[in-house]
Amino acid sequence: MKGVLLVNLGSPDSPTAKDVKPYLDEFLMDERVIDVNKVWRNILVRGIILQTRPKKSAEAYAKIWWEEGSPLIVISERFTEKLRAQTNMPVALGMRYGSMTIKNALQELADKGVDDVLLVPLYPHYAMSSFETVVVKVMEDQRQFFPNMRLTTLQAFYKNPDYIKVLSKLIADELKDFEYDHILFSYHGIPERHIRKSDPTGYHCKIDGSCCKVNSVAHNTCYRHQVYATTEMVKKELGLPEDKVSSSFQSRLAGDPWLKPYTDYEFERFPKEGKKRLAVITPAFVSDCLETLEEIAMEGKKQFLEAGGTDYKHIPCLNDNDAWVGVMAKWVNEWQVTGALPS
């Protein structure tokens, strides 16, 4: 029997330092998130970061927490319920980190007789710290606890025409009543070394502004190429002027260089160039979360306005948008009937 497993990032159980600390520990101790020697990772995370970060992160979570709970969890659950209504397959939701474990989600499917699972990492782009770690964790739990269960993975859908159309429609709808000088596609940041590590050829990715435009098998696992491709495809779909659209990268840790340009630097730069009415979209996520709601919608707006901007609009993620649910339903139902996956 076939079934669907949706996996998103996860969340602490409450916006308190007590609950944030174990969540951050699990997240930051993931070798695909902070990819250094385990001894050094332990020192960095448990000896340094977790001594101060939980309190600060809890304060940030408290600013965006909903009455129903974590926005990411609530939105993901709403999306799951809507998807269930459009397929006759069992659909389970798990999180890579936190108490809504992947193991429990797999058990939910197994209890319903599912032995053939379509894994859907809820990330449009491939990165070792998001898409890859989800796939690896699901495979580990499947091998250990559900050895007779078959897994098929929906690949990163960053350039799928259905996804591009529904993302573009969302952006167009949100911009109907907003006169903008510029649209910024702000993506989650990752260290440059992750790009090189994910390059199967070992030589293609140079992060020099040109390699992303030269066709290569490396693009299948290149986060940088994929996010820029998403921006270009949406820009083409909506007929957006070249000089009014750009991409940047948010969230980073000190140390090694991360993908540039940095979103916070762009917030400072745009007003100085006369771009004082800014719209920001965060397509690395399909569900709004701490990074989109606090870092971009709140702190980003404050920074932009203090730098001289006059109007700022944060465009929400696809969340449980009915058209987006319809796209996912189309994909999973086609897999159920034909075994084929979208390209």
Rank of each mutant, 00 (worst) to 15 (best):
L72H: 05
K236N: 07
T152I: 06
E273I: 02
D322R: 01
E294Q: 14
E237P: 07
I281R: 00
S216I: 12
Y228Q: 14
K103M: 00
D311I: 08
T338M: 11
S129I: 08
I49E: 00
Y158W: 15
E232F: 13
I34C: 05
P271W: 06
V117A: 11
Q142D: 00
R84T: 09
I43T: 13
T292G: 05
R252V: 09
P147F: 07
P54L: 03
Y158H: 14
T230L: 04
H194D: 07
I34F: 05
Q250E: 11
S246D: 10
T87I: 01
Q336T: 02
V325M: 06
N319S: 04
V337M: 11
I75S: 06
G300L: 12
T292I: 05
T80N: 04
A218L: 06
L238K: 04
I43R: 13
L83Y: 11
A307S: 14
A127V: 06
P71K: 04
H219R: 03
F79I: 03
F285I: 01
Q336P: 06
R84S: 11
S11H: 02
P200Y: 10
F145D: 11
A62E: 08
M1E: 05
Y180K: 13
I296N: 12
I75T: 08
T338L: 05
P90G: 04
M89W: 00
E306G: 05
Q107G: 09
T87G: 09
L93D: 06
D208H: 02
L83F: 01
D111C: 03
E59M: 09
L170H: 13
W65S: 13
R143W: 13
T87C: 10
